[in-house]
Design a protein around this nucleic acid. Structure first.
Lengths: 162, 162
DNA sequence: TATTGTTATACTCTATAACTATA
DNA sequence: TATAGTTATAGAGTATAACAATA
């Protein structure tokens, strides 16, 4: 366990909570979209994986199935997502989740607003510095996907499920 | 608002919540220290700013004074922090917050454990890649300190308070 | 009047456990 | 038996508002 490992770890531990708080506070203040961070991420996942199942979303976002189920209740109630049980499905235990037109619109608007806020803050950096940030995020991204999701993605390759 | 701003913003929005969840989940699982992320950060701040006030900590961590007061109740109850009203103080509205020996020990242990976890994950990166991560965090750190804390640090220069 | 800190209260987020339906 | 999803319940975390003491 070298010094550089620990230095990077220490920096993450210092900075990530601040970043997270800034993002969360911004989203909370911005009443237009009225999405929590997990709700926002859920809509983003459904946008890219239309028709996916509850457990798949839960694994990706990192929530328990029960919590995701409740979160989804809220999204369905607000008409941002449709949740269907298809009785002619191959496996009738699965539910089919899709964005509505309204869900797509809200996602787009929330994404634009939050990215604009972040862009404003990041404007203090030089283009080269921003490139460093992008690069770091791309390095970190694959390291912190949940074990469950990795298993699911492997299983998908074999089964062709979803 | 150039493309690079938005790209960096988009990456942050994608990756930061995942990082945060990994950190939080790890801390929650690790029952030894039994600290939430804000509690951990609070101890860290008190370690570096011994004798500071409630509002100063609240501003730094990004919690309302009321929430920080409750969080501090818990730390005091667990004998990790002392909270004193000094009746010979210059300004008797302020409270004096300090780590106990136990608080310092718990902080050190929690920091070691979490950094070890992160180091393990970051071991998948090359030294150069880890350096990129460190650099990015150091760039982001000053950008996301709260407005209130900036004001407070300016005021401190004038007043010599704390 | 303004600020520090506290208490009261309520709401959001999340997890665990127990359950149903399907495989 | 095992898995997908749901419901019930409880706990953590946080905010707002109202308040006390001090400036």
């Amino acid at each position: 366990m070298s010094e550089t490992h620990n230095e990077a770890g220490a920096e993450l531990l210092e900075v990530v909570p601040q970043l997270m708080r800034a993002i969360r506070d911004h989203m909370r203040q911005h009443r237009a979209a009225d999405l929590s961070v997990p709700e926002f991420r859920t809509l983003g996942f459904l946008d890219q994986h239309s028709g996916t199942s509850l457990i798949a979303v839960a694994d990706h976002i990192g929530l328990s199935p029960a919590s995701m189920c409740r979160l989804m209740d809220g999204l369905v109630e607000r008409c941002l997502v449709t949740r269907e049980r298809k009785f002619d499905a191959v496996d009738r235990r699965y539910v089919t989740l899709e964005l509505t037109a309204r869900g797509r619109a809200i996602l787009k608007s929330a994404r634009a607003t939050t990215q604009a806020y972040l862009a404003e803050v990041l404007a203090a950096l030089s283009p080269a510095e921003r490139a460093t940030v992008v690069q770091a995020m791309q390095l970190l991204n694959p390291l912190f996907t949940s074990e469950r999701e990795k298993e699911r993605m492997l299983a998908r390759e074999h089964d062709g499920h979803f």
